[in-house]
């Protein structure tokens, strides 16, 4: 990825370049479908939209703040121990998020169980800290963090919507497939609840994404 050096003295808050930081990760530079990072949590927690939504918001919060904090500290972090500093920052934020979830949405917190803690090991977060926040100013770093987390979250929600709709006939816990469908013989697809289907769904999303945007296809 090309590192953008923000040398311009004055830049408006939403200059085209900054907007791009926010929008690119959702489409062209999507962390999941293009960089194929953070796949493990996609497999684990996309059975229901509700859990995925909470997960997406958590990651947005962690990533936005982690990028800001690392960006603020970027001149003071000795290069040799930067990974450990980054981990400490992420871990602290994840603990905060975990406590908030336990306090306000206990049932979802139970459902996500260990995967909230595993946000620490989400490769997207570490990747963005290393690749972007360590070399950029605070505001662009913040946008980059939010953008990447949103790119991650959007795929998470898409996969979860497909899996919950076809696997359980519900969305956010509300029944979508009408009862008469079940009466005439429709049956929920049990494979959708199993992890392999998350992988296949992500694969299909990648397929469609590359088909629509030919510049993503490597011609090596």
């Amino acid at each position: 990825m090309s590192e953008e050096k923000n040398t311009a003295p004055k830049e408006t808050l939403f200059s085209p370049r900054n907007k791009k930081l926010l929008s690119e990760p959702i489409g062209k530079e999507n962390p999941i479908t293009v960089q194929v990072l953070g796949i493990c949590s996609v497999l684990a927690i996309t059975v229901q939209v509700r859990a995925s939504l909470v997960m997406a918001i958590s990651v947005v919060a962690v990533m936005g703040f982690a990028n800001v904090i690392i960006s603020l500290l970027r001149h003071g972090i000795p290069p040799r121990i930067r990974i450990i500093v980054q981990l400490t920052v992420i871990a602290a934020l994840v603990i905060l998020v975990d406590q908030v979830l336990k306090a306000f949405v206990y049932d979802v917190s139970r459902q996500l169980s260990v995967f909230v803690g595993l946000i620490i090991t989400n490769c997207i977060i570490m990747g963005r800290l290393e690749a972007f926040a360590l070399n950029n100013k605070v505001w662009p770093s913040f946008l980059d963090g939010i953008g990447n987390a949103a790119g991650y979250g959007s795929i998470l929600l898409l996969v979860a919507a497909v899996r919950e709709l076809l696997g359980a006939g519900t969305l956010m816990g509300y029944q979508i497939i009408p009862n008469f469908m079940y009466q005439i013989g429709y049956v929920d697809n049990g494979l959708m609840i199993l992890p392999p289907m998350a992988l296949i769904t992500v694969g299909v999303i990648i397929w469609v994404h590359r088909h629509r945007d030919r510049s993503l296809v490597d011609v090596s």
Partner: peptide, 10 residues
């Protein structure tokens, strides 16, 4: 295999 895992009852 798809049928087997998706609709095990059948």
């Amino acid at each position: 295999a798809f049928l087997f895992f998706a609709y095990p009852a059948y």
